[in-house]
């Protein structure tokens, strides 16, 4: 008998089934682990494939190249998959591809040496630009207002017309 009911009505699982459940849980865990390990590898291949350029001249990433009978995409993908399966580090894989295909294989400049300038310049430009705008605003605010040297109290008709025109423009009507 697989189930024995105690007086409380809660089914009592036989030791056999309990063991089966343990096995099942273990099996499920192993299968899921293997699956996720595989998924992790795929994700890594995909991620690294987007950081490499296919050398067929299409200027697309290794993952993006879809040229019919491309002579590079297949072998390069195989090399990448093999390196990921071996458990090579990202750095080692990148180095391998640079040694094999040259620096053009990397989809973006590295963060070393002269290449680092490529990454730094846009941020330096942003900081310089913000500083410049704030400086311009500060300078403009300091600029003195133009005051007419006419007799105080007497407002000239042409000034009034100018102010009306300015108000019209600034209110966008």
């Amino acid at each position: 008998m697989l189930f024995k009911f105690k007086k409380t009505g809660v089914p009592h699982v036989s030791p056999f089934l309990r063991d089966m459940g343990t096995f099942r849980r273990l099996g499920t865990f192993l299968v899921m682990t293997l699956l996720f390990l595989g998924a992790g590898d795929n994700v890594r291949v995909d991620r690294l494939g987007r950081e490499l350029i296919c050398m067929c001249g299409c200027t697309q990433t290794l993952v993006g190249c879809n040229h019919l009978n491309c002579p590079y995409r297949g072998p390069m993908t195989q090399q990448l998959t093999a390196a990921v399966d071996r458990g090579d580090s990202d750095k080692a894989i990148t180095q391998f591809f640079v040694q094999t295909y040259g620096t053009l294989v990397l989809a973006a400049p590295t963060n070393r040496g002269f290449d680092r300038i490529a990454w730094l310049v846009p941020y330096i430009a942003l900081l310089a630009g913000i500083t410049l705008v704030v400086f311009i605003v500060w300078m403009w605010r300091k600029r003195p207002l133009l005051v007419h040297a006419s007799v105080p109290g007497a407002v000239r008709e042409e000034d009034l017309a100018q102010f009306r025109e300015q108000a019209r423009k600034e209110t966008g009507l």
Partner: peptide, 24 residues
């Protein structure tokens, strides 16, 4: 503009081109 011309600049200064692609 910078990303587009950086390969030319790199070749001029370092002697080899680099790729500046989508990740950058």
């Amino acid at each position: 503009l910078w990303g587009t011309l950086f390969p030319v600049l790199s070749e001029w200064i370092q002697g080899h081109k680099v790729t500046v692609g989508p990740p950058f």
